[in-house]
Design a protein around this nucleic acid. Structure first.
Lengths: 224, 224
DNA sequence: ACAATAATTTAGGTAAGACTAAATTATTCT
DNA sequence: AGAATAATTTAGTCTTACCTAAATTATTGT
């Protein structure tokens, strides 16, 4: 552990981790889009991250960025902060799940180890945040899950909602109004291969049709 | 309300407010010392603060800095954040009073209005932080007090401790071990005009002698 | 009053981290 | 394969906020 990383570097690492773990690769353009800056700026920064001692990313021209073990540790630390803070804003301060992301994005960079430890203990060492995202352990290990994208289900299958991967407040409010929150039980009434729409029965509500842009970001656990 | 102020600017305003309200003037050197930077850097920044629209400080060469009403509002906002956060770290997360300052210094710049509102409500809208420092109201008015420096007391007088103005963790722990905390009742047994030492009886403990460097920073309310 | 000293400001420089525009390298399509 | 397009990198610039060293302005002591 050398000196503390800047907020900026933490944001890069978080973005690289996010893109990588969402199945894609952390290309210059993708990083630029996620960070809201110009691609040229990303190139420069990623080169710097690769030149640090120890290096936080592995970088070769036109190959995007890959986290080193040190880089991944740092990313998981930030992610742990972010998700613990979200959990704690909801549990202890009564925030709604659509309001916590912005606040957590700012707080995640400035809290101390002591703070992290105290809120984790106060919450009973949660393994998921309010959206169902897994919270890395204190040892910075990402807990394993049986999460499967809702978009992979087909007619007749039943499942429990485990995670809603979304940071857009209006959309989160909408999904909540549909009952599509972690813990909800749903059944797939129909699948349309033409547009990938799913018709879902969520709890005892009347059926809704959801497109792939949503169902790809909702994760469920299949029920026997 | 224009755009949000940078953390940097907030720190300058806080420092100017602090120096001014501690009776001194916010000279370039004093600010530099408090902020831990070179005097030359302060000059440049203060000039910038005075050139902002609206100006946050009034500045004339060799005269130090003075907050404008807008500057004072901004300083009080940061101070309110800082002190509410300290209170809440102690009350809700079980921090000790010597550990909250550092954390609050980082958090004060990043919390939202919603966060401020929620912790203020959760704490019952406190008027003092854990060290007894007054917390500006939501309307950014500094509450008035009857606080008087302990150093102004003389033999035979009795008082209640209201505030311990100190950010040094080891010293805070020492003062706590002496019982010198907000709410404590003390009597002055003796005053030495040669070195300004006070001999104090704190609660029912055995007397202690404290120098002016401490007693100038402890504030009390006189008892009938 | 006037020299010595202290405080302050100016001038010039550095480091981060962003930007744009231009050059280069990959990829895709026919 | 070769051309068109897309992605990426390079080069050069900007801003912020700090620094040091030198010049200036105030203050203090005799």
């Amino acid at each position: 552990m050398s000196e503390p990383l800047t907020q900026n570097i933490q944001d890069y690492l978080k973005a690289i981790y996010g893109l990588t773990s969402e199945g894609g690769e952390a290309s210059t353009t993708a990083l630029a889009a996620r960070l809201g800056i110009a691609p040229a700026s990303v190139t420069g920064m990623v080169q710097k991250l690769a030149a640090l001692q120890p290096p936080l990313v592995i970088y070769q021209k036109h190959q995007g960025a890959l986290l080193t073990p040190e880089g991944e540790r740092a990313a998981l630390e930030v992610l742990r902060h972010h998700r613990l803070i979200e959990a704690w804003l909801v549990e202890s301060l009564g925030y709604s799940w659509d309001a916590v992301h912005e606040e957590a994005c700012k707080l995640e960079h400035v809290i101390s180890e002591e703070f992290e430890t105290r809120i984790a203990a106060a919450l009973g060492h949660p393994v998921r945040d309010p959206h169902g995202a897994p919270i890395p352990s204190a040892a910075l290990v990402m807990p394993s899950t049986n999460d499967v994208p809702l978009s992979s289900l087909r007619g007749g299958e039943k499942a429990v909602v485990r995670r809603v991967r979304c940071e857009d407040a209006p959309l989160l409010r909408h999904l909540e109004s549909l009952g599509l929150v972690p813990g909800a039980i749903l059944g797939v009434s129909d699948f349309s291969p033409y547009d990938d729409n799913l018709t879902l029965k969520i709890g005892s509500r009347k059926p809704v049709v959801l497109g792939a842009s949503v169902t790809r970001n909702v994760f469920v656990e299949m029920m026997g």
